[in-house]
Design a protein around this nucleic acid. Structure first.
Length: 434
RNA sequence: UCCCCGGUAGCUCAAUGGUAGAGCAUGCGGCUGUUAACCGCAGGGUUGUAGGUUCGAGCCCUACCCGGGGAGCCA
C-alpha cells in the first residue's frame, strides 16, 4: 500500500478527486454523533475534514472526538469540491492520526481583550486574523525588496549598535557595550548616506528602536524601517520614488494576498484607489487647509500634531505628500530650500484613513560648512559626526532619501487599527514578552 | 511626563452598601451536515494589592501595582 502524497491546503484545488495527506492543527470542531466536522489548519489555509464513524478506524474517530482546539493531527482522505463546506473544498477522511490531543487551549473562538491576547501572542499568531496579517506583512516585505532590486538599488545593512544618536532628538535605548555606552539605532540614515556615496542607490531595511514613552496605536518601541538613499537625487526625485513604491506595494498586496485581505474584511476598493498621482501639498498649503477647518487648533509655524495629520489625510482618498516644512521643526541634516530658506527640503507622507505618518524623508545638506554649522547650532557634539562630515569633504553630491515604517504601512494596507498587530512580537512601553 | 478609562471564574462581562452570577471555554453523556454559542449534567472564585469608612464593602475613600486609549515625540 502506497502512502498518499502529503500536500498543503492552499494546493487542494489541484487535487480534487485524489486522496491526499494533510498535516496540521485542529482549528475548530463540531461533532454530530457519528460524524465529526474537523477544521484543519496547516499554515497555508483552513479546510473542513469530515469523519464518518463508519468510514474511519474506530480509534481515530474516538481520538478526534477527544481532541480539543490546536491538537496536532495528520489526516488522509479524498479531496472533494463541496459547496456546503466553507472554502469550497472538503476532505472525506479515511485514516489519520492524532499526534497530540490538546485540551484547554487558551484562545477560544470567543472574544478576548488585548492584554490577554498580547500575553498569548505566541499562540495568538495561529488565529485566522493574525495569520492573514502576517502574510500581508510578508508580502509587503517581499514587495519592498523586489521594488528596489528591480530598480538597481543595493541592500546595505546599517548597524544596530551605534555609538551616539543619529538625530539627537528621540530617546535612545542605552546598552552596556563592553563597559562603554552604546545605543540601539533609531535610524540607519547616516550610514545609508555613506553607503549611497559608495554604491549610488541603496536601501537599508532592519529593526529600529525608540525609547519614547509613547502609548498610542501608532507606536512601537521596536519596529522595522526601510530607508532608501539615492546619490544625486533631489527632493522631487525621492517624492516620486516614494509614490511609485507605495503604489507598487498596494498592487502587490492586492495581487498576492486577496484572500487574506478578505479575511481581514478589508475594503478592497480603498486599496484599488491607491494610484498615482498622490496629492502633493506644501506645508503652507496644508496649513491653509487646516486654517479653514473648524476643529483644527493648528498654529502656523508648528509641526503638525496627530489630529492635524488626520484632518489632512482624511481630506483625500490616497496618501498625501506634505513637503517643505519650516526648518525649525525638522532635523539638522535636511537641506534648506534655496527658493525659501525658512523651509527645509523635506517630505512627510501621510497614509490614507488616518494612520498617520508612514514616510519621512528629505534632501540632505551636502555642503560641508553648512552642515557643520547646523550640527553646532543643534548643540550636538562634533566629534561623533566627523565621519559623517567626511561624506561632505570627499566628493559631496546632492542626495536624498526617506524612511518608511513597516508596521504602519502594513496597518494601513491591511486596514487595522493598531500597529501592534502588524508585528509578530510587538514591543511596547509596557510589553516586553513573550 | 501629563490627561481619561479599566482590573470580579481559564476568557468576555453582570451584580441599589445586604447570600458573588451568566455566556463561552473545560469534563462527561446524546445527536449523520455542522458553519462564533445544538441538547443535558458537572466542576470551577482570597472580586489587582495594602490600608481605611461602615453593623456590613466587588461597590465608598486613600495609596500603590498592572493594563488600555490619547497628548507630546516620531515611522
Amino acid at each position: 500500500m502506497t502512502t498518499p502524497p502529503v500536500t498543503t491546503i492552499e494546493k487542494l484545488s489541484q487535487h480534487v478527486g485524489e486522496t491526499v495527506t494533510l498535516q496540521g492543527w485542529l482549528y475548530d470542531k463540531s461533532s454530530k454523533g457519528k460524524l465529526h466536522f474537523a477544521k484543519l489548519r496547516d499554515g497555508t489555509g483552513i479546510v473542513q475534514c469530515v469523519l464518518f464513524k463508519n468510514d474511519v478506524p474506530e480509534k481515530l474517530f474516538e481520538d478526534v472526538g477527544h481532541a480539543g482546539q490546536e491538537s496536532s493531527i495528520v489526516l488522509t482522505g479524498l479531496v472533494k469540491a463541496e459547496p456546503r463546506a466553507p472554502g469550497g473544498y472538503e476532505i472525506d477522511v479515511q485514516s489519520g492520526r492524532v499526534l497530540q490531543a490538546v485540551q484547554g487551549y487558551p484562545i477560544t473562538p470567543k472574544e478576548h481583550g488585548p492584554d490577554f491576547l498580547l500575553n498569548n501572542r505566541h499562540l495568538w499568531l495561529r488565529s485566522r486574523r493574525q495569520w492573514a496579517l502576517m502574510r500581508v506583512r510578508d508580502a509587503v516585505i517581499t514587495a519592498i525588496r523586489r521594488f528596489y532590486d528591480e530598480r538597481g538599488f543595493v541592500c546595505i545593512d546599517s548597524p544596530i549598535f551605534t555609538p551616539s544618536a543619529c538625530e539627537g532628538t528621540s530617546t535612545l535605548f542605552e546598552v552596556d557595550y563592553f563597559e562603554q555606552k552604546a545605543y540601539l539605532t533609531q535610524s540607519g540614515q547616516l550610514y545609508g548616506e555613506a553607503a549611497a556615496m559608495a554604491m549610488g542607490k541603496i536601501y537599508t531595511f532592519g529593526p529600529t528602536f525608540r525609547a519614547e514613552k509613547s502609548k498610542t496605536r501608532r507606536h512601537l518601541t521596536e519596529f522595522w524601517m526601510l530607508e532608501p538613499e539615492v546619490a544625486f537625487a533631489s527632493l522631487e526625485d525621492i517624492m516620486q520614488l516614494a509614490e511609485d513604491m507605495l503604489v507598487f506595494l498596494a498592487q502587490e498586496v492586492l495581487r498576492r494576498r486577496r484572500p487574506e485581505l478578505e479575511a481581514l474584511e478589508r475594503d478592497l476598493s480603498k486599496l484599488e484607489r491607491i494610484v498615482a498621482p498622490f496629492p502633493r501639498l506644501s506645508y503652507d498649503e496644508a496649513a491653509a487647509l487646516l486654517a479653514k477647518h473648524p476643529e483644527s487648533t493648528f498654529k502656523y509655524g508648528d509641526d503638525f500634531g496627530a489630529p492635524d495629520e488626520t484632518i489632512i489625510s482624511n481630506s483625500f482618498d490616497r496618501p498625501v505628500l506634505v513637503h517643505r516644512y519650516p526648518h525649525e521643526v525638522k532635523s539638522f541634516y535636511m537641506k534648506r530650500d534655496p527658493a525659501d530658506p525658512r523651509k527645509a527640503l523635506c517630505v512627510d507622507v501621510l497614509g490614507s484613513e488616518g494612520v498617520g505618518e508612514i514616510i519621512g524623508g528629505s534632501q540632505r545638506e551636502d555642503d560641508y560648512e553648512t552642515l557643520k554649522a547646523r550640527i553646532l547650532e543643534s548643540k550636538l557634539p562634533l566629534e561623533p559626526y566627523e565621519w559623517y562630515l567626511d561624506l561632505r569633504r570627499y566628493g559631496s553630491v546632492p542626495h536624498s532619501g526617506f524612511g518608511l515604517g513597516l508596521e504602519r504601512t502594513v496597518a494601513w494596507l491591511a486596514g487595522i487599527e493598531h500597529v501592534r498587530e502588524a508585528s509578530p512580537f510587538p514591543r511596547m512601553m509596557y510589553r516586553l514578552s513573550p
